[in-house]
Design a binder for these strands. Structure first.
Lengths: 231, 231
DNA sequence: CGCGAGCTTGACGTTGTTCAACTAGAGTGG
DNA sequence: CCACTCTAGTTGAACAACGTCAAGCTCGCG
């Protein structure tokens, strides 16, 4: 992770992301003034569960995995963070600690925006707040979906679901699967690495997927969907 | 569930709840105009997972259980909704369906507020939006906690946690435990009713709790906390 | 060439669910 | 007032799902 100077032309991004559109020029200036741009290297932590946070992160570029940490290096992967998404917003409004960790799986260009700036803008600008609430709502819905899967599906359904989720990202990012180890995959489904391996093999045998080196190709999309639903 | 006329003096509540404090007189009027007051009877559904929602609910009075529905009547109880809390806000900003169910465990006086009114106020009034975001954040944090418990703790820890959670509400509401069946309790910990019964007995045997008729008294608070932490 | 990390496989154990049977109280109708 | 049914609670035994362990394998890298 290294800070990036505003002068390094190639890295300067205007605050053009859709979610900043509703800001007034002064508000843009405020955000711009209270942000730092940082490059996280593959493997770096963007956020660490439980750590104090005086800023929120906004991903310009790259991919990261958001996960919950348990004891004994048991993690649960919630989602893959893509460009245009916030990380650690909750720290702004609530606890001022991150309630999840996230780690870069490719190099990531990220804005760190100071909490105070975000709070100010939200209070001034209803439209921006509205946008933020919508994002929260979406996150909330996703958490509910996660809970539903964990509670009511078993291994097969959960892995199928994880595969389908990651496969969706393949369009924008053809190498997603190569970026993830078996343990990473297992952690998306909240199962052990060994079970993950066994299930992948059995899915391959049954013609649902193909395992090439590190890549995974979904062959029978609807079949997997079926499994994911049935549990 | 029955609607209540504004003229029924005893049921008229001003919008005095803390979260409405930041509204301007016109905004208060807007909310007042687009709300209905309803009495839900014990056992009525305040919200039904998946159902369309054109309104959010605001609980004035009474208790309800918020839960996620799975197939085969397997539910997971998320929390007990108390006076002053919103239900179904996510429907306002996001999907326009409820992503959880909730059922009254005592009679509940509730405001139904039209989505449009809330959206308008949020967009106009940054402070109100800010407040709402904070509530969301809190809900989010709670969901993370729920996930953490489900993922990393086993039966004993989960039930201990559920007992402690409900016990906290006993102050404001001495009869909470009587309002909940063993299945309800089990659903808070996401275990089977049978396991719940067995665990309660064993906790009683070990002097952590006392089982009286339908009430449960926590005797060894710190012991339960220990169990809840250890898993 | 050797070493270590990630992957793979099968045997075994644990956790917690399911099933079936039994009990106790609460209502209901004759 | 007594059978009756119905629901909630209780118990133990059988079973399934899944994790853990131990061992071997492969491939990239020093």
């Amino acid at each position: 992770m290294r800070p990036i100077l505003e002068s390094e032309q190639e890295f300067i991004c205007n605050i053009q992301a859709p979610c900043f559109q509703s800001l007034s020029p002064e508000e843009v200036e405020l955000v711009r003034a209270s942000k730092t741009q940082v490059l996280f290297r593959k493997g770096d932590h963007l956020s660490k569960q439980g750590a104090f946070a005086s800023y929120a992160l906004f991903v310009i570029n790259g991919l990261a995995v958001q996960y919950i940490e348990g004891e004994h290096s048991k993690n649960y992967n919630l989602r893959i963070i893509q460009p245009g998404e916030f990380v650690g917003l909750s720290a702004v409004f609530n606890k001022n600690t991150f309630n999840y960790s996230s780690v870069a799986i490719t190099d990531c260009q990220v804005y760190l925006v100071e909490k105070a700036a975000i709070v100010t803008v939200v209070q001034q600008n209803g439209a921006f707040g509205f946008n933020l609430i919508k994002r929260y709502c979406e996150q909330n819905s996703n958490l509910f979906d996660n809970l539903r899967h964990l509670l009511f599906k078993q291994m097969h359904g959960r892995i199928a679901n994880a595969l389908l989720y990651i496969d969706e990202l393949k369009g924008a990012n053809p190498s997603v699967f190569q970026l993830l180890s078996r343990k990473d995959l297992a952690d998306f489904a909240a199962i052990s690495t060994e079970s993950c391996v066994k299930l992948l093999k059995s899915f391959e045998k049954d013609g649902f997927i193909e395992l090439l080196e590190k890549d995974i190709v979904v062959i029978n999309h609807s079949g997997l969907t079926e499994i994911s639903k049935k549990g």
